[in-house]
Design a protein around this nucleic acid. Structure first.
Lengths: 122, 122
DNA sequence: TAACTGTACTAATTCAAATAAGACAGTAAG
DNA sequence: CTTACTGTCTTATTTGAATTAGTACAGTTA
């Protein structure tokens, strides 16, 4: 289910890009699967069609979906490029976080413990 | 030196809070040291006094500085409460980042390697 | 032809951040 | 006491990004 959270401070189109990307990567949305049309999704979510169109445009640029005028928008066949790009970004963000922790006096050992706690849960 | 970066998307008052907090923790600003007055700093940075006042208000709320009407604003004697609070936030942010990496398929081993790379630099 | 699809463009609206200007009270020095 | 600082508070205005609104155009499908 495609949703947005109004408590989330990020713009709606960013949330849509994030959610649909995640659903595509997890397999909840499958390759070649058709997405709701811009107008259809806009009505069902109670938001403006242009906001959906902007999200779809971003998703196409990232290679998550492809759009064909007159037909609709579909999940891409090959998500590997996007997946690699995402891993890169996640790792870079993590490095920033690690350095912030380092600068706040968190020890390497403490950090390893935290990594373990998060990885060995559920 | 207290500065703001206009390329930074964060509000100016947030940047000021962050910069002055960091300088206080690092010792670049020492306990009881007087900060520039609201008006003085506003002129020297070319921004509005109210923006500075808002930042000083936040800093006082966080316990980084204390302000006395008529005298000025000064770095707090005891920054331990703020320091602990900061470590908490940094660790929580890190846990979020770790889970994002985990969900993107980054292995625990890979993550440990990254932690090592960042910690054993400089 | 009719009813869909995505895309593009411009104008209006909304909201937080920042600015502007001023008022008030405490402090310190002449 | 007076003057010139200090922080604090209030209200109105401006600015810019995000979003909405409305419309137009071209491709697709039945």
């Amino acid at each position: 289910m495609i949703t947005v959270d109004y408590k989330d401070k990020r713009p709606i189109y960013v949330q849509l890009v994030d959610n649909i990307s995640t659903m595509a990567l997890s397999g909840e949305l499958k390759p070649f699967e058709q997405l709701p049309s811009v107008r259809q999704l806009a009505v069902s979510m109670g938001i403006n069609p242009n906001t959906i169109a902007r999200a779809y445009g971003e998703l196409e640029r990232k290679g998550v979906i492809y759009s064909v005028a007159g037909k609709g928008s579909f999940i891409s066949n090959d998500l590997s490029v996007f997946a690699e790009e995402k891993v890169k970004k996640v790792e870079e963000k993590l490095r920033v976080g690690i350095n912030e922790a380092k600068n706040s006096g968190v020890s390497k050992e403490r950090l390893i413990v935290i990594v373990g706690e998060e990885y060995d849960r559920d």
